[in-house]
């Protein structure tokens, strides 16, 4: 695997990666915030290209770094290269009506399931690291982290059937 980076004045920066196989991937980070990806198959001349905006690039980046995307409700699994046994799952959930009016402490989320609520979003207002006394409303989106069985427990015991 060999790598090079080139400044393209007036455009941005290009990173090229040649794989062991002989394929080449080039990524151009443009000053405008958009990105282009080129893939040149080994032995061919003409690259295929795709253009991504910043959000799409981040998404692609997190997929390439090993995160898994689930079909229903968004989830991401984070693995750190230095701590390969550590796999944290991050999952979003919508608070149903039956939990409305109750707080994190009241529901004993950490005790009952092992998962931790790290953020609550209500009508585009985000609260990160919410207090245990934070009261939920129906429709709040929460971000929960934990191992898969902890999140499963959260889904079955707290959110309910």
């Amino acid at each position: 695997m060999s790598e090079r980076s080139v400044e393209l004045p007036g455009i941005g920066t290009k990173f090229e990666l040649e794989t062991e196989n002989g394929d080449k991937v080039a990524i151009v980070f443009m000053n405008s915030g958009r990105n282009q990806i080129y893939i040149i198959e080994k032995g061919r001349d003409n690259p295929a290209a795709a253009e991504l905006n910043a959000k799409e690039a981040r998404r692609l980046g997190s997929i390439l770094s090993g995160a898994i995307i689930e079909a229903e409700r968004e989830a991401v699994e984070i693995a750190f290269s230095a701590l390969s046994d550590l796999r944290i799952r991050v999952h979003t959930y919508v608070i149903p009506k039956k939990l409305a009016g109750r707080s994190i402490a009241d529901l004993r989320i950490r005790t009952e399931s092992g998962a931790t609520i790290v953020a609550v979003s209500r009508k585009n207002v985000n609260v990160i690291s919410p207090d245990p006394s934070h009261v939920f409303q129906e429709g709040d989106i929460v971000v929960a982290i934990g191992e898969s069985d902890q999140l499963k427990a959260f889904e079955t015991r707290i959110l309910g059937p």
Binding site: V6, L8, P9, G10, I11, K14, K24, A26, V28, Q36, Y38, I40, P47, A49, E51
Partner: peptide
């Protein structure tokens, strides 16, 4: 979408 080539670097 010509930025992959070496020529594009030369041009720029």
């Amino acid at each position: 979408r010509k930025l992959a080539s070496r020529e594009s670097e030369t041009i720029v």
